[in-house]
């Protein structure tokens, strides 16, 4: 187990380097000047100076300078050359608090000049994580019972109903379900709030909207597992022992049927936490998802790379957690 965790963690930097290189190459190829505002255009010498501020004048200089600061090499150099100490002394002489130390510097946002990418992510990732986790919990709470109901009695009307609802859940885009939920709960019934983030009542509707496709998928996975488990030898044995049906289903069949669901939860968590752009837009949630789309539209290179790196890290980590959970739930499995 320890070996598995260590190997995966050791691979992470390599994965990130590859992702960084690919993302930058793609993002660099997006046409347009990221520093261009509105319809106004400064003279060429000013424009050259603007680009130079952010090392945007050449791919190579951007590539290396980003690596330099993002990996912490620059901070380390400053530290060992005594530069950061000199800097601190200077500020102390001025009676001013120094700006926060940054070891892994993901750079500034080109669109939001007063924000560093790390600050943007630090501000919005917790929101997306909350939203994503609530959505996944809801998805499990909705999806598993629906799958069990269908899987226990395949071919009956309950099964068809749960399959039909799952199909709708997967096919309907969140801007439709989100708008419908807003219409039904806050507008018609006066329940819950529209927009904003903070209280549980504000979190519920966006989380529900986000959870529906995941719930549907979990329902399908659980049903599949249940159908298979219900016809297996150990379920027959359990029944032969005279166990009540509920114990057979809950204790014996579901435990095995849940394994594919658990392995799906890894990527699902990562997706729920980062892929909530539409839900965030509909409910005005200040999460990370919006930056995936807006950063590309604005050609905000630092932000694009920042959010992609965060997403990749999350994907790797969640898969790792799932693999660990998997072995914990089912000790037979050797990874």
């Amino acid at each position: 187990m320890t070996r598995l965790i260590l190997t995966r963690l050791a691979q992470l930097p390599l994965v990130l380097l590859a992702v960084y290189t690919l993302t930058l190459a793609l993002a660099w190829a997006i046409p347009g000047n990221p520093l261009e505002n509105s319809e106004r255009r400064p003279p060429p010498e000013v424009e050259a100076a603007m680009k130079a501020q952010y090392n945007l004048d050449s791919f190579a200089s951007f590539y290396w300078s980003y690596l330099d600061s993002a990996t912490g090499l620059r901070a380390a150099r400053d530290h060992f050359s005594g530069r950061s100490d000199a800097e601190r002394q200077r500020l102390a002489d001025l009676h001013l608090a120094p700006p926060p130390r940054r070891v892994f510097d993901l750079g500034p946002s080109l669109q939001y000049r007063d924000q560093r990418v790390s600050e943007i992510i630090a501000g919005s990732l917790p929101v997306s994580a909350q939203l994503g986790v609530i959505a996944i919990i809801l998805a499990i709470l909705i999806g598993t019972p629906a799958g069990v109901l269908g899987g226990v009695r395949p071919g009956t009307w309950i099964d068809s109903l749960s399959l039909a609802i799952a199909l709708i859940g997967i096919s309907l885009p969140s801007f439709v379900t989100g708008t419908l939920l807003v219409l039904v709960f806050p507008v018609w019934l006066g329940l819950g709030k529209v927009g904003g983030w903070g209280s549980l009542s504000q979190m519920l509707l966006p989380a529900l909207t986000l959870s529906l496709p995941f719930a549907a998928y979990i329902a399908r996975l659980t049903r599949m597992g249940m159908v298979e488990a219900m016809s297996s030898d150990y379920v027959r044995t359990a029944r032969a022992k005279g166990l009540p049906e509920s114990a057979v289903v809950m204790r014996h069949a579901l435990k095995n049927a849940a394994l594919p669901v658990v392995s799906y939860l890894g990527p699902a968590c990562a997706m729920a936490m980062t892929g909530s752009f539409v839900v965030e837009r509909v409910f005005n949630v200040p999460g990370l998802g919006q930056h995936f789309v807006n950063a590309v539209q604005n050609k905000d290179l630092f932000l694009i790379i920042g959010v992609v790196l965060v997403f990749s890290t999350m994907l790797v980590l969640f898969n790792l957690v799932v693999d660990v959970l998997y072995r914990w739930i089912d000790p037979r499995i050797k990874v």
Partner: peptide, 18 residues
């Protein structure tokens, strides 16, 4: 309980952060 425990932990964390 091995299946339910992680779920309960998550719900508690959310309630706290909210």
């Amino acid at each position: 309980w091995r299946l339910v425990l992680p779920l309960i932990t998550l719900i508690a964390a959310i309630a706290l952060s909210a």
